[in-house]
Amino acid sequence: MTHTIGFIYAHPDDETFLSACLIRQLADQGHKTVLLLATKGDAGKKNGDVGHLSNAELAAVRELEMKKAADIMGITHTEYLNYPDGKLNTIDSTEFVDNVVLFINKHQPSVIFTFPEDGGNGHLDHMAISDITSKAVWSERCDSVQKLYYVATNPLLEQGHFPSLFIDTASQWEMKAQALRAHDSQKLAINRYFGDLAVLPENRRYEAFVLGWERGVFWPKKTEQSILDDLI
Rank of each mutant, 00 (worst) to 15 (best):
Y149C: 11
D125S: 12
L157F: 03
I132L: 01
T153V: 05
A136E: 06
R141L: 15
T133R: 01
Y149E: 00
G120N: 11
M127Q: 12
E140D: 15
D131V: 04
M127E: 10
G122W: 01
S139A: 08
S139D: 06
V151N: 02
H126F: 10
S130P: 07
H123R: 13
A152D: 08
G160K: 12
Q159G: 10
S130W: 06
G160I: 05
G122Q: 11
N121L: 11
K135P: 00
D131C: 08
K135N: 10
W138G: 11
N121Q: 12
S144W: 07
A128V: 00
V151Q: 00
G160A: 13
F162G: 09
A152V: 09
D125R: 01
D143R: 15
M127G: 00
G122V: 03
P155H: 04
L157N: 01
A128E: 09
Q159V: 14
R141N: 14
A152R: 00
F162R: 06
D131Y: 09
C142I: 09
Q159T: 12
P155N: 10
K147Q: 08
L124F: 09
E140H: 12
G120W: 07
E140F: 15
K147G: 12
H126V: 11
L156E: 03
G122K: 04
L157C: 10
C142Y: 05
S144P: 05
Q146D: 13
H161P: 04
D143Y: 13
H161R: 13
V151D: 01
D125M: 02
H123V: 08
A152Y: 06
A136W: 10
L157R: 12
G122M: 01
S139R: 02
S139E: 06
V151S: 03
Q159K: 10
C142M: 04
G120K: 00
F162V: 15
S134I: 06
S139I: 10
S144G: 02
V137F: 05
S134H: 07
T133S: 00
S139H: 13
F162D: 14
A152E: 13
Q159H: 06
H126A: 08
L156C: 07
G120A: 11
S139L: 09
P155Y: 02
V151K: 07
F162Y: 11
S134Y: 08
T133G: 05
S144R: 05
L148E: 02
S139P: 12
S130K: 04
F162P: 04
N154Y: 11
D131R: 06
R141I: 13
Q159I: 14
H123M: 11
I129R: 01
D125G: 00
I129Q: 01
G122S: 12
L156S: 06
I129A: 07
S134K: 08
V151P: 08
A152W: 05
Q159S: 13
T133F: 01
N121D: 01
R141Q: 15
E158V: 14
F162M: 09
T153M: 00
I132G: 08
D125L: 06
H126N: 09
L157E: 04
H123P: 02
A152I: 01
